[in-house]
Computed example of a mutant assay.
Amino acid sequence: MTAPAQSTTVSGAAPRTAPGNAADREVKRRRVLDILDAAGRDSLLLTTHTALTWYLDGSRVHISLAGDPIAALLVDREGDHLVTFNNEAGRIAAEELPQGVSLHTVPWHGPLHATAAALAGDGNPLFESAVTAELRAARQQLLPAEAARYAQLSADAAAAMTDVLYGATPETTEFELVAGLAARIVSVGAEPLVLLCNGSGRSDFRHPLATHAPLGRRAMAVVCARRDGLVANVTRWVAFDAGTRQELDAEARIAAVEADIFRATVPGARLNDVFAEIQTAYERHGFGADQWKQHHQGGPAGYAGRDPRVTADVTDTIVLNQPFTWNPSGPGVKIEDTVLLTEGGIQVLSLDDRWPAAEVDGRRRPLTLRP
């Protein structure tokens, strides 16, 4: 197969300006004030990456991808107050601060959260951990500007997969493959939060961190890319032969499991009911009743890789314009894309028209690439 022309999509502009959309931010503030009204409180302290990037509508409040946020935000009835360290304030003010948010500083060695909490009128704000479920519900439904940003990020992540995997060979190592993916993700202004790869010698691992092993005859690659706080998730497969009958059959059956999950993902359904459908779908399509126990199944997406991972105990109700990443898997097979539940049904966001696909239940689903 001839390699396609590389995608050159680059989102955003230089120098960077805060991505926050004023109309979307007004809605988010109203949602938080509703939480305060229900709790009978006057202020809320936000401290996690997920809550901060959602409420600030895409501001980058990290330095290390593995570290805690370098900011905390107090939302009260008078306004929004962002506290950061003195050595971060210049960048935050120039590139990340949405209009209408007051910026406060604390010494780089000072107490970030305590300083933010002290800004509350009574010095005793409601803490994020007390309203985890309420905040998750507040960010379920993507607003117009963030939905557009998410669609572009998802398309960029899918394009990165196409660009890199078309250039792979059996001799390419897993590290070389994920290095190429990292470069493509960074080149479009995103951050590679997760990069996974297993060549044919390591296909039993569902979360395969890369090694120096060559890909061999068949490989899986996974990317979780973050931009403006939103996280897109994509899995793709590449093979350098025609595939065995068993492999091709398993690929078709895992796509059928996914189609059943998509049909169950409708407004008003509860996530634990979708989880029950996942369990029966594995058995229905020949993977056995216990296959769901071998790997998590995904769930709502957006400002966290999964928000949350779905289990039998998660009873959230699905709403329109909510993003998802389901990732059913079996021995040697997995399928995963970032999607949005719209009035017309499931819309796959992480599509690249250059990638080979087959129609499954009325939508294009990725096949294994054979370059």
Rank of each mutant, 00 (worst) to 15 (best):
W108H: 07
W108I: 07
W108N: 05
H109G: 04
H109F: 04
P111C: 12
P111N: 13
H113E: 13
A114E: 14
A114D: 11
T115C: 05
T115M: 09
A117M: 11
A117W: 15
L119H: 06
A120W: 01
G121W: 03
D122G: 08
G123V: 06
N124Y: 01
N124K: 13
N124S: 14
P125G: 05
L126Q: 08
E128G: 00
E128V: 03
S129A: 14
S129Y: 07
A130R: 15
A130M: 14
V131W: 08
A133G: 08
E134G: 00
R136K: 06
A137G: 09
A138L: 10
Q140C: 05
L143Y: 11
L143E: 12
L143K: 07
L143N: 04
P144D: 02
P144E: 03
E146P: 03
R149D: 05
R149G: 09
Y150T: 13
A151D: 07
A151W: 00
Q152M: 11
S154N: 08
S154I: 09
A157Y: 10
A157F: 07
A158D: 02
A158H: 10
A158S: 11
A159D: 14
A159H: 13
M161T: 04
M161K: 10
T162P: 01
D163F: 08
V164Q: 07
V164R: 07
L165P: 03
L165H: 07
Y166I: 01
G167I: 09
G167M: 04
G167N: 11
A168P: 01
T169E: 07
P170G: 13
E171M: 02
E176L: 03
E176R: 09
E176A: 15
V178F: 03
A179H: 12
A179P: 02
L181A: 01
L181Q: 06
A182R: 15
A182M: 12
R184C: 05
R184E: 14
R184W: 00
R184N: 04
I185K: 01
I185A: 02
V186A: 05
V186E: 10
V186I: 13
V188F: 15
V188D: 02
V188Y: 14
G189A: 07
G189T: 11
G189K: 12
A190R: 08
E191N: 09
E191A: 13
E191T: 15
P192F: 10
V194R: 02
L195Q: 07
L195G: 00
L195R: 02
L195H: 08
L196W: 15
L196T: 01
C197P: 01
G199F: 01
S200P: 00
G201M: 06
R202N: 12
R202K: 14
S203Y: 08
S203G: 05
S203P: 00
F205L: 15
P208D: 04
P208I: 10
L209K: 09
A210M: 04
T211Q: 09
T211G: 03
